[in-house]
C-alpha cells in the first residue's frame, strides 16, 4: 500500500521528456490470495473531482466543456504495461497525445487560444 500512496500525485513524463499530467487516481485489482495490483493510472478529466462533492464535480465538468472538451468528461487511462519506470516521476512509454493526457490543453488551444493572434500552432 505504501507504493500506491507514493504513486498518487506523482508527475507523469512521456517519452519526449514532457511533463504531461499527474497520477490523480489508480485502478487496482484486488485478489483473493495475493496483494492488490495496480492495473492502470488515471489522470485528468475529473479523476479527482468525481470523488469530491457533487457540486465540485459539476463545476469541474462545466469548466472542461467551457474549455472546449467535447463529449463525456473522463480521465485518461494509462494501462500499467505502458509504465516504463518509476523514479521521482512516472515515466510512460506512450506520448502525451496518444495517452490522451493533454486533451484539455489541446481542447483549450483549439477553442480559445489559437484564435488569438500570435498563439502559434
Amino acid at each position: 500500500m505504501d507504493t500506491l500512496y507514493e504513486l498518487m500525485d506523482q508527475g507523469i513524463v512521456d517519452p519526449n521528456g514532457e511533463r504531461c499530467g499527474r497520477v490523480d487516481d489508480l485502478e487496482i485489482e484486488e485478489g483473493f490470495d495475493r496483494a492488490p495490483r495496480v492495473t492502470a493510472i488515471l489522470s485528468g478529466g475529473g479523476a479527482k473531482s468525481r470523488h469530491m462533492w457533487r457540486q465540485v464535480n459539476r463545476l469541474s465538468v462545466w469548466l472542461h466543456h467551457v474549455l472546449g472538451w467535447k463529449g463525456e468528461v473522463a480521465p485518461a487511462r494509462i494501462p500499467w504495461e505502458e509504465v516504463e519506470k518509476l523514479d521521482q516521476d512516472v515515466h510512460i512509454r506512450v506520448s502525451a497525445g496518444a495517452a490522451g493526457l493533454d486533451r484539455l490543453n489541446r481542447s483549450a488551444a483549439e477553442r480559445i487560444v489559437k484564435h488569438i493572434p500570435g498563439a502559434g500552432s
Partner: peptide, 11 residues
C-alpha cells in the same frame, strides 16, 4: 513556447 502549446497556462 508558443502559447498554443501551453494553452491552459496562458489562459
Amino acid at each position: 513556447e508558443p502559447p498554443a502549446r501551453s494553452a491552459l497556462f496562458h489562459l
